[in-house]
Every structure is written in C-alpha cells, then in structure tokens.
Design a protein around this nucleic acid. Structure first.
Lengths: 338, 338
DNA sequence: TGCTGGCACTCGCACGCACTGAGTGCCAAG
DNA sequence: CTTGGCACTCAGTGCGTGCGAGTGCCAGCA
C-alpha cells in the first residue's frame, strides 16, 4: 500500500519525465514540486516505488523513469482528463464543419487529432456491421450485368459488379430493387441475411438464378467489408522522439502499415468509454514501447467505430485523453447531422 | 566534354555508392571494377568529374559521392532500365489478380511497389478528369432529397446528397435519370458541362429548379473531385537509411502526409513515359534529398493516373525504374479487364 | 516511527589527446 | 596521357581523466 505522498511523488515523476524526457532525480523533484519534504525523504519514497515496480532507473547513477506499471497507476488514479480550451473546441468545430462527405470527415478528423495531440492519429471508418442500410441500388450496366450499390446510414458507399447467369429485364430489376429495399432499408446489417432469405421464391423460375446471385453478392459485401477500413495520419510526429531512433519507430511504422494489426488493436479496446493501453499491454510486439488511447464514436448514443492516437508511453495522458474524447464527440455530432 | 572512361568511372562510383552507402575512393574503384587503369589515373578522372560538378567529397580525406547532377547524368546516359525477372513478373500478376475492387487494386499496387523497390510507394487513383462516365444514378431518399451517384469507367464511385428546392416526383426523377445518362454515359468528364447545359429546358417550370440543383451538384462533384486521391505505403522503408536520421525523414514524412504536395509532384511529371526527378529537381524542399520515379498508367493506351516511388537520391535507379514500369503495365491491364 | 542532513560511492558522459589509415593532390618519370 | 611515389589531410577510434548528478546508507532529531 502506497502512502498519499508516495503517489504524489509518482505523479511528479511522471509529469516531469513527460515534460523533460529525461530521468528525474530526487533533488530536481523537490525543486520543481512543492512536496514539503527533503530530497532524502523523496529518495526513500523512490526506493519504495522502485521496489513495487512503478519506476526504474536506466543505470545506477541516474534518475528514475516510470515503468508501464507506473503509467498505469498514473492514468488510473492520479490523472484526470484535461478538457480542451474554448478556442480549441471552436477550432475543432470549425474544421470539421467544412467536411463535404464521409471521406472528408474521416480525413479531417485524422489530421485534427494528429495536430492536437502531436502524435499519430488513427480513425476507423464507421463500421458496416453496426450500421444500418439506407438504400440498396441496382443498376443495369448491360443485359446480364448489374451493379450493386450499398449505402449506409453513415454515408458510406460500397459497390460491386455482378455478372448474372441470365439476362435480367428492367422490370424484374425494378421489382427486385423495390422488394429488397422494402425489406432491408433502415435495418441493421447483421439482420440482412435472414431478411432476404426467401426472396428468390417471389420471382419467376428463370429469374431466380440471377436474384440468388445478386443476393449472395450483397451478403458477401456485408461480410467482406466487415473488414474495416481506417485512415492514419501524423506519422511525421513519430520523429519527435528522436532518441532511440530508429529502433523504435521502425516497428511502429510497420505496425501502422498493417491495417489488420491496427484494427485488432482498436478491436481489443472497450466498446464504450475511453481505453488506454500502455506499452506491453499492447499485444503487438512492435507497439510495446507505445501507448494507445482510443474511444468509440458514433452518430447516436451508440459507437459505430473507434478512433484514437498512438504515441510513446511517455505521453501527456490527460491532454491526449481530453483531445481524443473531444474529437470523438464532435465527429459523432457531424455524422448525426449528415 | 567527358571521355568515355570518365563516364565509366562515374558509373562505377554511382554503382558502388548505391551498393555500399559509403564514399568511394580511387583504390576501391580499381579493385571492384575492371577499368584497366591505375588508381592514380582514376584520381585524375575523379578530379575532373568533381570540377564538372558530377561528384563531391563530404570532407577532404574521404572518397567521392555522386551529386544530383551526377545521378542525372547516370540516369540519362549511363543506366538502362533493368527488366524484372520472370518470377517477379509472375508474382506481380498473381498478387494483382486477386483484387476485388478499385480500392483493392490501388491498395495492392501500393504494397507491391513498396515491397519490390523497398521504398515508399505512391499510387494515384484514376483521375476523374481523364475518365469517362459509366453511369449516373439518382436515388430518391426523401421527397425533396436526392442522392447522386457517379460511376466512372475505372470503377470509381462518388456520391453526393442533394437537398432539392422543391419535391421531385419519381417519374420526373426517372426522366432526368434517363436523359442524363443518354447524354453523358461513355463521355469524358471534361465534356459533361456542355452536354448537360440545356437540360433544364426540357422540364416543366416547377421542376427546373431541382434539375438545375442536381446538375450543379454533378458539375461540382466533377470539379471538386478533380482534387485527386492517392494512397501511399512502405513508409517503414524510410528507416532503412538510418544514417542522417531523423533530419532526413522528418520532412519527407511531412511531405508525404500533404497529399497536395504529392499530387503536385506527380502532376509535374511527364504524362507519358517515365519521369525521374532527382534531389533538388523536386520543387518541394522536404524532398530535396530524395528522388521520385513516376510513370503514368491507364487502362487503354492513355494514362489516367500516375504511380511511383519516393526514395533516397542514392537509390538503385535501373531496378527501381524497372519495377515501376512493370507494375504500371500490369495495373493498366487489370483496370482494362474490370 | 518518520524525517532530515551529511557523506561516501557509483557511473555515465564530455573532453582532450594521440594514433591510425583511407584517401587525396601533386610531381616527375615512363 | 598514364603511372608510381610521396607527403599531407583529417574523420574516426580508443583511452584516460575529471566532473557531477544521483544514489544508498546512517546517525541524529522531533
């Protein structure tokens, strides 16, 4: 059990280390913080904190730096979420309000987050699985060729070209379009399969093959595109921790390029509320020296996707968390309006 | 005027420097290349080459490295384009053949290029301005709300939501859709404006406002989306030149994030044939220590977009040019098939 | 029991210095 | 025009030294 003062010492160490990026010693601590005790006392506390594994020294005659466990305690018990300033909020709103379509919203969000946190930003596109269908369109491109266009409530559009087993008349196509939309429009993606199950039966025998093909393509699209997309930005910020270069950033850049890795990362985060994963808490090895702050966002009360930032474990957690939360809220609003 | 042998010396210097990444001296040159002359002679040649500005020495007692001007000469007169090996060609084909849609094609291309060249790959989406319209679709989302979907011959899809000034009936909508498509389907984007100019006149007065709104949105989309999109990959390869870190890669990463910069960069390249821009030939300051190899690609004989790689000036030009050209060809084929 | 000042100790780091060797420019001879 | 020889330059390396930040421990005091 750690005394109140020792927690205070840990907090001071984290804050100083985040600020200076250098190991912090007992003397510097007493000078920069009003702890009300002498360096010697702080040394004792630091020894205790080190025994407990919250801090460590890089080498014998150096100050201490927080361990992953230390950051964890800091985030959980010692730090709040720092709200943004009014000008920052206004800037966010203005910047996001200019977006013209979904791509633009996501693009702006990623730039905004990267700029605010000065770290790498990751924004997931609104997920199809948690979205609802706004409209399904079928376009005859040729006698036996149909284009399927799928539009979600968040404005995302997916299209597929379908080669039909037999020519398909314009009236049949219109019929299918109407039946399809009346069943699935406004419904959740996950519900679609059973909603269209018996649709072929409503058609003439000669058209059933085509209807089945269209439906299976639709279902495929739902499944395949569950493979989410995401956008990243601010990688140039990685160069800010130029110390342990390039050993550190190489694996991080590689991890960022593997969208699968990132998606898994975001997937592991809680669906609601903010998630902070520190250092080795991240399953992916390349990200062992980074922390990931993520949060879900959505147009209504419910989260349809996640966004967050990836930065060094030595990051300004309160500020980062504040920025991430604020951006998520505004993006949610924008999506709800559009 | 440079003698044949001096050119040969320059070629040897470039090759060795690209291979070893270290300044190359006269002795090492005569050992690694069969120049048939002594180091002393080579020294004289090197002095001449330095006078002409083709090579330079980082400091007095070091070997020489090529200057931008030296690389330029090398690319223009001393190096060919190294064709890929048969297995490489097969690998490309196999990899690209698996693509399901345009996003996938571009994504795979970028990964492929990054892998083949071990550098940063940039692929521009097929440009709208040089594309033709495959289909324009209008969907009634609400009585006075229409979604415009624009589909290009390269499979790219853009959509816009339109708030109409007045309710618009389903029959009017179908009418507009039919007229619109009969005029613009198969035509070039640049021709669209004049093709639809007099379209409102064909409608009842009460609908003209809406028709005009739809048309102006369509034209806006054409213009706005002329702002091209692109995808980049392989940024982790930047860490391979870990020497002049991070001074070098910081500005490069920043430039890569600014799509505008990249688009301008690609835009400055020739429309046909391969373009190599070396070091300071790149207008953007952050890319002064990199070279850009780019080439147009397209589904037919004509280029609809460009792709290329960004790497250190000290790169394997023949190999890189070979990979870029080959990939561009295969992507063109894939696009033509789909 | 807990805090404090004092003190000896550790060790990374910056600095100075000499040495080494790759590479050069110049020159006289072939 | 080429070549071998030669003196010169200078970045990089390894070593020894001093400095100082920081520590751990201990005895004294509240």
């Amino acid at each position: 059990m750690l005394s109140e003062r020792r927690l205070e010492v840990l907090r001071a160490i984290v804050q100083d280390y985040v600020g200076t990026e250098e190991p912090v010693g007992s003397k510097a601590l007493t000078e920069r913080h009003r702890l009300g005790v002498s360096p010697a006392t702080v040394r004792n506390d630091m020894a205790a904190l080190e025994d407990e594994g919250y801090i460590a020294q890089p080498h014998t005659s150096a100050g201490r730096i927080p361990t992953d466990k230390g950051y964890r305690l800091f985030v959980d018990r010692l730090a709040g979420v720092k709200p943004l300033t009014a000008p920052e909020r206004r800037a966010i709103q203005n910047f996001l309000d200019g977006a013209v379509d979904l791509d633009d919203v996501v693009g702006r969000t990623v730039r905004l987050l990267a700029q605010l946190t000065r770290q790498v930003a990751v924004v997931q596109y609104p997920s199809l699985t948690r979205s609802t269908v706004r409209h399904v369109e079928l376009l005859a491109m040729a006698p036996a060729r149909v284009m399927l266009v799928l539009i979600t409530d968040t404005g995302r559009v997916e299209q597929r070209m379908i080669d039909c087993p037999a020519p398909f008349g314009e009236t049949s196509l219109a019929d299918l379009r109407a039946r399809l939309n009346s069943r699935v429009a406004g419904r959740r993606f996950t519900d679609v399969p059973q909603l269209v199950q018996d649709l072929p039966e409503a058609f003439e025998t000669e058209d059933r093959g085509t209807v089945a093909t269209v439906l299976s393509t639709l279902l495929e699209t739902l499944v395949e595109e569950t493979e989410e997309r995401l956008m990243i930005g601010g990688t140039a910020n990685l160069t800010r921790f130029a110390h342990d270069f390039p050993l550190t950033i190489r694996p991080v850049l590689e991890a960022l390029e593997e969208q699968v890795v990132l998606l898994k990362l975001l997937g592991e985060a809680k669906d609601s509320g903010m998630t902070v994963r520190i250092g080795h808490e991240n399953a992916h090895e390349g990200l062992n020296s980074t922390s990931v702050v993520s949060v879900g966002y959505g147009s209504g009360g419910e989260a349809v996707a996640k966004l967050g930032v990836v930065g060094p474990t030595r990051m300004d957690y309160p500020g980062t968390m504040g920025a991430v939360r604020a951006v998520a809220r505004y993006v949610g609003q924008i999506l709800a309006e559009s």
